[in-house]
Amino acid sequence: MSAVRDWLLDDSPASRLQASLGRSWRSFSALMRNPLAVAGALIILALIVMAVFAPWIAPYSAIGQDLANRLAPPSALHWMGTDELGRDIFSRVVFGSRITLMIVTMVAVISAPIGLLVGAISGYFGGWTDRVLMGLTDIFLSMPKLILALAFVAALGPGIENAIIAIAITAWPVYARIARAETITFRDSEFIAAVQLQGASSARVILRHVLPLCASSTIIRVTLDMAGIILTAAGLGFLGLGAQPPLPEWGAMISSGRNFILDQWWVATMPGFAIIAVSLGFCFLGDGLRDVLDPKQRDGR
């Protein structure tokens, strides 16, 4: 074990593999020394486990109604109580983790590549391409995100897919900015020139050499943005524009608990705690990642 560790921490690695594994190991162990980052990682791990094994974890069905037992307070039988249709809130929260996980994954999968590509192209070619693309990015950046997402959903129609599209449309400009800044710093460096001299096409240079280098700062940013995405998605759900009933989306659950907030407080509050926990998890992990991978970017939100 210690031989492996020594090999990883070798100051003069003998191969590229050893160097990159060593670097990952150092980042990983630095991350593990940061208690908040560990807490964040654990929360997100719990979210994933919950989503994958939902049917085994949840004691009841997420949509099965039990009208005789509606609005029951938290108890040993129903840890988080039941809602106005007698559904077990804990089970709904567990199944809801699937929706939340799907939304954040989809938004990241759609918006990060768009932003990266726009930013890399903008930074790599410079000149007019840069001015036009960044002008567009800046316009999107100075728009109110939530309002824009609302307007998009209003146009596209309520529903979880449209909510994802709307959030993704408002999320990409930040990544474009980051990718452009990163690209500019190494656009004129020797290794890019070397690749160009070998006759690589621009597309190849961007895809194979530029984009991978933008990855770490984008990952940090995406992680930090996750909390915002979760809140926006929950907000859309709360307004009835996101996931539609009877889907156990956390924001929609809070919305339906709204009418009982004064007497049956658990209906609305419980899903809220789930949202807070998961958002905090992403914040913690993002903060930790930033400290480890990119110390100079600290607190630059």
Binding site: L231, A234, G235, I254, T269, I275, I276, S279, C283
Partner: peptide
Amino acid sequence: LGYSVPAFW
């Protein structure tokens, strides 16, 4: 918390 609590909640 300011980044993770839903305002409506």
